[in-house]
Design a protein around this nucleic acid. Structure first.
Lengths: 230, 230
DNA sequence: GTGTTAGATGAAGGAAGCTTCAGGTTTGGA
DNA sequence: TCCAAACCTGAAGCTTCCTTCATCTAACAC
């Protein structure tokens, strides 16, 4: 990525007429297409513009540089997935922990799989584009949603809901990424989904208020691990 | 990254005299240093060579191109961490599942944290360099080690040890990556470690032969999630 | 109908950095 | 001591691509 970073050229132009709004959409979509077709290595601004049916100049009228373009695409994609997560979290309020875990994981994985190819392609660019920042913002949103959901659980949690939510996210994001990048996502999907549900249920169960009292009644050799939390 | 990929130039030259072996090491180390100092965006072959105290030409005597250089560095780093994992797995054979989980996670995280900065820097390059392939090879090694360890557990597993191992890996890798990329790794390390241990213990417990019989004795509303496995 | 603004064009300027190669230096054995 | 192989050097070639800007066209208000 040559040429140094420009200073105050961030926004550039905002669509006013209808046609330009369509142009922006087309450019964003074209970016994903090109990424899927030729890979990030050969994704050039000219090529994207061509695919979108406009000229490079037009592209630069809405995006200050290539980096901003890619960032916009990443942001858009992550937002969509986070929307799905927020939706599940909202509708699972007041249910049991295991119902929450099952629904959350299932819906999250479905959302990821629906755009599997795109997800994988975007993993590869987000590092070129300060994707970590975008990622963190989005995950903050998701974390809030999950935390709120957990707080409303019938059983109640013995530990900080935010930490538990964070852990769940880490697990979901990490495992799904592995799954997608393994290439055999389609094939292993259901098996991984089920295993992940088992894992999440076991974890939430262990973090629930009920589990603590159960653990207390058990033999002390397991107390080490549950007790390690204090 | 300009210039198309060259065809059969992979190995190039193998060190014969002692000085050249030292040169190769110096180049590899310099690569990491430069990466840490200026980031991948401004990592140039000339700069790496300079840092290593040699000229670009020398660098190209041992690495056919920039990509191969970066791949070598990634491979080296992942191998080191996998060595640590293999070591724990070996020494935990025959122990209980919760002991295994605790040891594995603790040692893995320690290894990651010891080279935290480097790990983060390498995450960013591995996508430019077909890192997924290297990653998969290494994780295959780790998977074998973990699987063997699990098979030797006192309790025995109710599910495919390989799948369980894979899940554990996904969780460890995913969560540690999140932790490292969050920036606050040092601060959150211990909390995350403990939470991860809890999670892993709960998961293994749920996957153990013992858990199955326990679940059978419980109320049926939880059977859904454990039973989802059949 | 006409002026004004929004939107679109694409050739060309430049920067950047990977990689080569023609030739020098060092090493180690005979 | 001398030679051949191993090693090292670094200026310059070459490619690629981002980004600009002078110019043109379409849309809308009055």
């Amino acid at each position: 990525m040559p040429h140094r970073i420009r200073a105050p050229l961030e926004p550039r132009k905002t669509p006013v007429q209808a046609r330009s709004a369509a142009t922006v959409t087309a450019i964003l979509e074209a970016t994903v297409q090109v990424l899927l077709d030729v890979g990030k290595e050969r994704l050039t601004t000219t090529r994207v513009a061509g695919r979108a049916g406009v000229s490079v100049g037009t592209l630069y009228q809405y995006f200050p540089n290539k980096r901003a373009l890619l960032q916009a695409v990443v942001r858009q994609h992550l937002d969509r997935i986070t929307d799905a997560v927020e939706a599940v979290c909202r509708e699972q309020r007041g249910k049991s922990l295991s119902e929450m875990a099952t629904a959350l994981i299932t819906r999250f994985l479905e959302a990821k799989m629906r755009s599997a190819k795109t997800s994988v392609a975007l993993y590869t660019v987000s590092d070129d584009v300060d994707g970590a920042k975008i990622w963190q913002q989005t995950e903050g949103r998701a974390n809030n949603a999950i935390t709120e959901m957990l707080k409303s659980a019938r059983e109640g949690l013995a530990t900080d809901p935010r930490a538990v939510a964070s852990m769940l996210q880490g697990v979901m994001v990490g495992v799904s990424r592995r799954l997608l990048e393994s290439g055999a996502a389609e094939k292993q999907f259901e098996a991984v989904r089920q295993e992940l549900v088992v894992l999440a249920c076991a974890y939430l169960e262990a973090s629930s208020l009920r589990a603590v009292s159960v653990a207390a009644r058990r033999s002390p050799d397991h107390g080490v691990h549950i007790g390690a939390r204090d």
